[in-house]
């Protein structure tokens, strides 16, 4: 197995999906001016919900819907909470993350009497079986959740830049006071943006769970935070944020490939740290630095 093979490509795409979804979800929230560090919570809760619904109904499609519904609900609730109570969005985000981590553990115990994972689900199994590079790649390319995620990510720039809704969301994110003076309902617009954010983020969570064919405690594993870094790195542009996530996934995929090659353990440790170091360096160098939305975390005044 070589470092850059079809397998690496397949693994990169597979791993990029949750990151990219979370990052684009972050872009939608923050372009609307809502600080959303609860992406981790969105991933985790939607992963859990999708598995729970899939197990309860036996329908994988309903499982996806259930996951998306929970992601949307959580994000909309976040926006409403921040807008109505003027609670600090960072604090709220931390609370969501803690709540999702403990809540999903509680759910595992209550529903499946397990501390670590749910029973397995069928998920979507399309494409050839086998472990050849092309077979792995074909399976990734046949995954409906990935397609949904891809479509959502691809239409995001169009929606944000070219539509009335997008213009209003950006206005509310850059200067809520001015947006309100222009007759835009700031709170409502933010709710809509966060609903979209939640739906896209939830696709990432669903992807995680369906990819593993079960829910595992803490399976989001910090992806929501890496996604936040990608948001900043991209200068709050959805396409670039998704690309940053693909680059990150590539580093991670290579790390697995290296592990498989059985390299010396020390080298593996270094490689494992690589994606994170790369993210830090990129942030530190301010690559593609563009300032944050001017109204990030601000409410309409006056």
């Amino acid at each position: 197995m070589r470092l850059l093979s079809l397998t690496t490509v397949a693994e990169t795409l597979r791993m990029a999906a949750p990151y990219a979804c979370a990052a684009v979800a972050g872009v939608w929230a923050e372009r609307a001016g809502v600080v959303q560090i609860g992406l981790e919570a969105v991933l985790l809760s939607s992963a859990f919900a999708s598995v729970a619904v899939a197990l309860a109904t036996g329908s994988m499609v309903l499982g996806v819907s259930g996951g998306v519904a929970v992601g949307v609900a959580l994000s909309v609730l976040h926006a409403a909470l921040v807008d109505r109570t003027r609670i600090d969005a960072v604090v709220a985000g931390i609370a969501w993350n803690l709540l999702a981590a403990s809540g999903s553990r509680l759910g595992l115990r209550a529903l499946y009497d397990s501390a670590s994972n749910s029973p397995s689900i069928e998920g979507f199994r399309f494409g050839p079986t086998g472990n050849d590079g092309w077979q792995v790649l074909a399976r990734v390319l046949c995954d409906p959740v990935s397609w949904l995620a891809l479509i959502a990510i691809l239409v995001s720039p169009y929606l944000l830049e070219r539509t009335r809704l997008g213009l209003r969301i950006r206005a509310v994110g850059e200067n809520p006071t001015a947006a309100r003076a222009a007759g835009i309902e700031v709170g409502k617009t933010r709710l809509v943006a966060l609903a979209i954010s939640g739906a896209i983020g939830a696709l990432g969570g669903v992807h995680l769970a369906y990819d593993q064919h079960r829910f595992e405690s803490g399976m989001s594993a910090g992806r929501g935070f890496i996604a936040l870094a990608a948001v900043v790195l991209s200068g709050w542009l959805p396409g670039r944020a998704a690309l940053a996530c693909v680059a990150f996934a590539l580093l991670e995929a290579m790390q697995f490939v290296l592990q498989d090659l059985g390299q010396a353990s020390r080298a593996v440790t270094v490689v494992q740290a690589l994606p994170y170091v790369a993210a830090l360096v990129a942030l530190g160098l301010g690559i593609g630095r563009r300032s944050a939305p001017g109204g990030l975390g601000k409410h309409a005044e006056g």
Binding site: L167, R168, E174, N175, A178, A179, A182, G183
Partner: peptide
């Protein structure tokens, strides 16, 4: 002024009545 600084003049102009 109630203007969104990073937007173009035209974008500001139509905001709310696009």
């Amino acid at each position: 002024f109630m203007l969104v600084e990073p937007f173009t003049a035209l974008e500001n102009l139509i905001l709310g009545a696009e």
